[in-house]
């Protein structure tokens, strides 16, 4: 209706696209330049003594499994001790640790029992953090072929301050 002039001739209104395209391309350039592909990051939740004091008394009665990590050559993992068992050494330490924790988890998976499986780490001060995370991964659970994670322990704690285990 508005496009018709009084004389009856038809005129389509011209929309100025240039500024919009300019802005759109500037936005696009900004997003392309600031875009970075980063690897997925995840968390392991750790409880420290303050929080555990505030928890229920039932949990306090659960005896934690004490896992001791000893530093070896080049601050790599030298050995893993689970409670009073002989120390695990060698290439397959993490697998042995995971198997031991899984065995205990299965023993405690009694539906009648409300006992919680708690792992407490005692870690050599100098041990590389990557080795600690390897041990935390081993006790946390395992990846099932379906891609899901089977949780082994209910809670992980660190004993206060890194110990010198020489």
């Amino acid at each position: 209706m508005f496009s018709k002039s009084l004389k009856g001739t038809t005129q389509t209104p011209e929309l100025e696209m240039t500024p919009m395209i300019d802005i759109v391309f500037q936005l696009l350039a900004f997003f392309v330049m600031t875009f970075r592909i980063t690897a997925l990051e995840g968390d392991f939740n750790i409880q420290m003594p303050i929080q555990s004091q505030a928890q229920s008394e039932i949990e306090d009665l659960d005896q934690p499994i004490v896992v001791t990590l000893r530093s070896g050559v080049n601050r790599r993992l030298g050995g893993i001790k689970v409670d009073d068992l002989p120390e695990f050494v060698g290439e397959d330490m993490f697998q042995k640790l995971a198997a031991e924790i899984q065995q205990r988890a299965e023993r405690q998976r009694d539906p009648a029992s409300d006992k919680k499986l708690i792992v407490e780490f005692v870690i050599d001060y100098d041990l590389r953090y990557s080795e600690t995370i390897g041990a935390v991964t081993a006790v946390t659970g395992r990846k099932l072929p379906t891609g899901e994670t089977q949780q082994l322990v209910d809670s992980i704690k660190f004993r206060d301050q890194g110990a010198r285990l020489d």
């Binding site: 870690i123 001060y125 041990l127 590389r128 953090y129 206060d160 301050q161 890194g162």
Partner: peptide
């Protein structure tokens, strides 16, 4: 924490 950090330093920060 960086992967090479001594775990003791992580625990000091937690403390």
């Amino acid at each position: 924490a960086h992967e090479d950090t001594p775990t003791g330093k992580v625990q000091e920060l937690m403390a």
